[in-house]
Write a protein that binds this DNA or RNA. Structure first.
Lengths: 214, 214
DNA sequence: GGAGAAATTATACACTTGCATAATTACTGG
DNA sequence: CCAGTAATTATGCAAGTGTATAATTTCTCC
């Protein structure tokens, strides 16, 4: 019954780093950044804690890497479905759909956002990542609205476009938040439908037609 | 230069508890629930840590008390301006205004919401408090929309009312979120104006007139 | 103004935390 | 197949954590 030293297998740096990052995201979503301890992360990744120091020079660095990984994932997930195909109106609709469908709308995604918020507002590097991602979303949405309005023969001045994009962004964010906070409160597809209708009402464009493609 | 024992003054249980709760909320907003240590809270309240145990049987209990205090405050702040006066349309407008004005829209308020999210989803007592508050807001909003539509001679069926209230709640939540996350990105009054316009567009009611009162 | 009680401070303890470093193990190249 | 190297594990440490308890101080009431 002598305590045996743990057997292990050498893995590539990339796969180990990714495994550590994924374990970190799991724990951060469950218990927050401080609750995601080095020991807990190591256990979740089936590794001993010393290994983390071998790949990341501090917990801080691991957290930052995990945050950037998550933000990139979110961006990819949002823009996956619609691509840049079709009319501006169709692209706008695809943007709404992508933003209001799992895995973007998800309790874990919301929990991660909430858990990172503190650190994001204090750490300059994380703040930069956040603002870059946020600006990307907003600009993209504003472009789509602009194009869709021009397409409909109703171009809008910049100030108006700003208001419309803030409002549409707010609906999407709000539905994202509620869908993540109360996942059982909505039928499948309900958030997407409400999102489409609301954006349509705000910009005064019909987003329901041409919907047979997906 | 002998170390002197700290002088102190006896205070009422109520004021001490409130001071401890306020100090807790400050620290939770800054560093999250785990970052708000018993020692940190005591220091912020200008008290030694042992006193906390005298008023709260555990840190957990203090956190729960602080959360309930905050939620009550949010409710009061939201419903303070509009009261239950005037037409349904005016009351709906007041609801939007109250939800999108400081101190409801505020970085600290958002940070508190985010910091508590984890615990809220796990602790049954906090979960109950959250759901009660959320349901209160949503029901109130749905009633207002229902009344405003009937007032305008355009009553809506329950399913439609549900969609409208979810959508309006989402715009308000989204603007609340963005206003708290990026306080310098919006002019004073801009969020309220966008919120009014968006709710107006969604429910198809003019919310700008009769606005001279505030 | 002094005794009793309650509020408050001070101290102690066991446990967790992030980080550092030493000891081992698995793989690679010859 | 064997040495060298880097990945991985194991161990240790100082600081911080919540909580328990003892020591003091302030206030109230007679």
């Amino acid at each position: 019954m002598s305590e045996e030293r743990k057997k292990f297998k050498r893995e590539s740096a990339e796969s180990r780093q990714e495994a550590l990052i994924l374990a970190t995201l799991e724990l951060v979503a469950e218990k927050g950044v401080r609750g995601a301890t080095v020991r807990g992360i190591a256990e979740r990744a089936d590794v001993t804690q010393g290994l983390i120091r071998h790949y990341f020079s501090s917990k801080e660095e691991l957290i930052v890497a995990a945050y950037e990984h998550h933000m990139n994932q979110m961006t990819d997930d949002t823009f996956a479905p619609g691509a840049a195909e079709g009319t501006a109106r169709a692209r706008l609709r695809a943007f709404v759909d992508g933003s209001l469908t799992p895995p973007v709308v998800d309790p874990r995604s919301l929990a991660l956002w909430a858990s990172f918020l503190n650190k994001v507002q204090q750490d300059p590097q994380m703040k930069a990542t956040h603002e870059r991602t946020y600006a990307y979303f907003r600009d993209r949405l504003e472009e789509l609205i602009k194009a869709a309005l021009e397409e409909a023969g109703r171009p809008a001045p910049p100030a108006r476009l700003r208001q419309l994009s803030i409002a549409c962004n707010a609906v999407i964010d709000g539905l994202w938040l509620e869908g993540g906070a109360l996942p059982d409160a909505f039928e499948p597809g309900e958030l997407v439908e409400i999102g489409r209708q609301s954006v349509a009402a705000i910009v005064e464009l019909d987003l329901t037609q041409e919907a047979g493609k997906t």
